[in-house]
Nucleic acid binder design. Structure first.
Lengths: 196, 196
DNA sequence: CGCCGTCTAGAGCGACCGTTCTAGGCTGGG
DNA sequence: CCCAGCCTAGAACGGTCGCTCTAGACGGCG
């Protein structure tokens, strides 16, 4: 059985994915994790906000690793990004439309009301952009273009999560996979900037 | 002075943009709008949920019109989408990082917990996709490709809002503007599908 | 065995939540 | 002038929130 701390984080992660930050109470987390309120405050003396930061940091690191392993499975870079979207679509359907990413929700709810949570979310997003940037540069995309495309990738993924989940359709993720693949292919074909 | 009902909706819209659905209380809405709790329940007998639906529907319609007028200002379609992103970036900075779109937050918070709010959010997103779809087909993009690109556009916009706001940077919106413009240009150049 | 730091247990705090209720002002038509 | 209607006012409800506190269970080490 996982440690109490890990169970608290895992349970909180799932509750955030289902209903977000503010709609999730410590009592719910207590019940779902099998830990008492006292245990939660023992491991996270900063209360709900500190627990939220820990969840964001943990999930951010896991997803970064997931991206890196998943993207390394394909020889063609464009295929990697398309498959990433299709994989996310499968997760979305299997989980019955749980948000694949608890961080997006936390970020949206707290970007103007909690600096610790905003900063933790920004750091997670930054690490993903950096991972995609490194991958794109590794396959030959010019540096400035790679960073811009990496940012676009992370933003589009987050946006398609919202759209697909709200509309109960994998169509946005499939469309994003195709268009992101096209952008990657274009960036590989013509490494020079295409500014107007 | 605007009608009480309108003031309630406007105030709620702004509070949702700042802090989301669950973090906004009826008391806050009452103070911000200058209407009493009794008035809120008079105009929205369904309570907070019904008020949320009204806000989503109102904002959804306004933004659809905004898109249509804004996109008609430019002759080159690619420029329209780039300018849309740049305009959103300006709004974001001017409002000191208020979420430009209350619907995305509401959708993310309630997609699995309130069917009326989920349905209203989905309808708003659908109407935007339809507006972009109509615009793209109007400038000569093939139907299936136009719909896919329109979906990608709405998803990317929502995603860049989250990323830009969380990171306190307009960079994601600027990157999205460039890449969306490139996708539109490509769709105009080669109307045939580019599937692998 | 006895001790101590780590972790768990659960009652209880004040504050605030969404909601309901009754009563009173205000306005336009008879 | 009166009165019926729509709208406002604000107290009050039960419930739940995040959080604090004290007490005890557990296990490794001297």
């Amino acid at each position: 059985m996982a440690s109490t701390r890990d169970r608290i984080i895992t349970a909180t992660n799932e509750l955030f994915r289902r209903q977000g930050y503010h709609a999730t109470s410590l009592k719910e987390i207590s019940v779902a994790s099998g830990a008492t309120i006292g245990s939660i405050y023992h491991f996270f003396p900063g209360g709900k906000e500190a627990l939220g930061v820990a969840v964001v940091e943990t999930t951010g690191a896991i997803y970064r690793e997931l991206f890196e392993t998943l993207v390394a499975e394909f020889d063609d870079p464009a295929t990697s990004y398309r498959q990433f979207c299709l994989g996310a679509a499968a997760v979305l359907v299997e989980s019955e439309w749980l948000d694949p990413c608890p961080i997006g929700g936390v970020a949206r709810e707290t970007a103007n009301t909690s600096e610790p949570l905003r900063a933790a979310s920004a750091a997670a997003f930054d690490s993903w952009v950096e991972a995609a940037n490194a991958h794109l540069q590794g396959v030959g995309v010019a540096p400035d273009r790679a960073r811009s495309l990496a940012t676009m990738f992370v933003a589009t993924i987050e946006g398609t999560f919202v759209l697909s989940r709200t509309r109960r359709s994998t169509e946005p993720l499939e469309a994003a996979g195709e268009h992101l693949a096209a952008l990657v292919t274009a960036a590989l074909d013509e490494p020079a900037p295409v500014d107007r």
